[in-house]
Design a protein around this nucleic acid. Structure first.
Lengths: 348, 348
DNA sequence: GATCGTTGCTGTATCGTTACAGACTGTATC
DNA sequence: GATACAGTCTGTAACGATACAGCAACGATC
């Protein structure tokens, strides 16, 4: 009669059976005769019953069959970062094999942690979320299994990641070995351009830079050997813009090699270099970080640090699921390695 | 004492107040004195109460504050398709402004629709999911608001999409106008390579081809003017492989222009053409479809059909949210337009 | 013919929360 | 001194489902 959505009870009454029987018709076909089941389902169909409500089920069962993924950026920026997408792909792959859904939560928007608090999930994976971010606190206060991917390493929380510092160092060693002595580093600035206080600096990026500068330092070069350009975000456009800033440097400080802390930035650098007539690697060597798919396709193909992002995502998902099943798990460290392609060469 | 997770009741008893007061302490700070609230929260903290359980809340409130996104591919393939990623970005952007989370559901894995049935969401957006796919039936039977993005158009379900047929036609007209008379089409085959019955053909891709061939037909050319190469998926590698098949054609059927039904395929074609020494567009014109970001950066820059994927995603999300608020909405048609860049030129 | 294990179904008790309608203060108003 | 009225807090009744124990009927077993 009414416009009320039908429930198990509605169907049960109409079919002349108990509510449990209707529930079983959906969830445990072996618990009732084929005939009753058919009848119940027919009545349900007739009433327009949409099937057992997942919210009720989840409450009763104490399981959500989904995992929350907390992203440091707002989702829009997240999807335009190929590195992050590869990481998500790894998570998605594992989760879907385990028949779990994946709930994406943008930390940037979720200032008060409301989305995190309302997320109906069995576990969380946090992706490079700043230690101080309120969403992260919200995640921890949920007292669900958590995996911290990328940065930061948290007390008592299993993590998945690479040694970013080491990654930066091997880039430095590679370039030094080729004879370079003046470097540019394209760095994503810690704060967002709008200088909001709830910013989510990518600590890992900073570590890459630190590892790099340590290598340079240990080769006995002065701090002035490195010119840092800060850019607001990790995009190709930002990488392009960075090159301009390097070109205005006085000749004796102008770099012969550029380390961009992400491949997206490095691709922008390649692009701008080509535009102003610099030949890579003859006039300028360029190194990225992440080894996204496009890095291998660029011309020249980009020398970069491979950090098996897909694999990291997969491992994160596995650790999350194992915890849901009640196991204790350990952190996983993934190896980063230099992939030398065509964008680096001997210093001029 | 016990290992039980604390609930509102536990906290209420410990704090010496009613359960409702604890609930209000979290949800309606204005309903109780600052002092009581502080006390309650302190007790909660002390007991390790993780905050009101979202499953209970969602059941009671009848809202999930999240939207399900059903993807035609398994999630892994989804993330490697830049066009789809752009689309997701649009959805994500709108949802996060509306403070909704986003639940990704891979139709490919979800054969029996279990993930769809268990999804705790207020609405669904289906992305290019085949009409016959069981997940789609599961979505419809949930009787929640639905938006069908891309394909197919469903009776009574608002949709968002472009006219793929028309898109194919404008590609045909462009190439005919340049004087081309022999064409190659790189098509994604309907079935998956493993010939599983639960296949999700991308109907839209077929329509692009149909629009294209209609244009060719109407120019008075025979059907043999078009050579179709079918590839298993929409990737750069598949596009590369397709070129080999076109090169083995007898000279009088060898195309002077190739229409690849997605940009990913077209980029592969460009790549392979370069590898075998064909100059684009002098020896071969290439057109893609989607206008993904990389299309503008390829060398030569790709002529393609722009379909404002991000915008489509955003519109889908908006339609979904408006329905959740109880409004009726209409389908939205987005215009597709040809973006002429450097990969097409006059026929040799 | 009493005992047993199956099969098929029912009844009750939660799961953890919030909506809603009071109820009890104490102060302000007439 | 009665009335009104915020400001706080409480009690009860759902929200829609599933776990689990229990019960009736039935053929099989001894």
């Amino acid at each position: 009669m009414s416009e009320d959505r039908p429930t198990l009870d509605t169907v049960a009454k109409a079919a002349g059976v108990s509510r449990m029987t209707v529930s079983n018709a959906y969830n445990r076909p072996d618990q009732l005769s084929e005939k009753t089941r058919a009848h119940v389902l027919a009545v349900a169909e007739h009433l327009g019953y949409p099937g057992p409500d997942p919210a009720g089920r989840s409450l009763r069962r104490g399981r959500a069959d989904s995992v929350g993924v907390l992203l440091s950026e707002d989702l829009s920026a997240a999807f335009s970062d190929p590195g992050l997408v590869a990481f998500l792909e790894g998570i998605a792959d594992e989760l879907s094999t385990a028949r779990q859904a994946m709930l994406l939560i943008p930390a940037e928007v979720d200032v008060d942690g409301a989305l995190v608090r309302d997320a109906i999930v069995d576990a969380f994976i946090t992706c490079s979320v700043d230690e101080a971010h309120p969403s992260l606190a919200a995640v921890l206060s949920r007292r669900l299994p958590v995996v911290a991917a990328g940065i930061p390493r948290l007390e008592g929380v299993p993590g998945v990641g690479i040694d970013n510092t080491r990654g930066g160092t091997i880039v430095g060693e590679h370039l030094l070995g080729l004879g370079h002595r003046r470097f540019g580093v394209v760095m994503r600035s810690a704060g967002r351009s709008d200088a909001s206080p709830r910013t989510a600096p990518r600590v890992g990026l900073r570590q890459r830079y630190e590892g790099f500068s340590r290598a340079v330092e240990e080769a006995g070069l002065p701090a002035s050997a490195i010119s840092v350009v800060e850019v607001p975000d990790s995009t190709i456009a930002a990488g392009r813009a960075a090159v301009e800033q390097l070109l205005v440097l006085p000749p004796r400080r102008r770099p012969t090699a550029v380390f961009a802390v992400t491949d997206a930035l490095a691709l922008g650098v390649l692009d701008a270099a080509h535009a102003v007539g610099l030949r890579v690697p003859r006039d300028l060597s360029v190194v990225g970080f992440d080894d996204i798919a496009e890095a291998a396709r660029s011309r020249p193909a980009l020398t970069t640090v491979s950090q098996a992002l897909r694999e990291q995502g997969a491992q994160s998902a596995i650790l999350a699921l194992r915890q849901v099943e009640g196991h204790r798990v350990r952190s996983v460290r993934i190896d980063a390695e230099l992939v030398v392609r065509d964008s680096t060469g001997p210093a001029a």
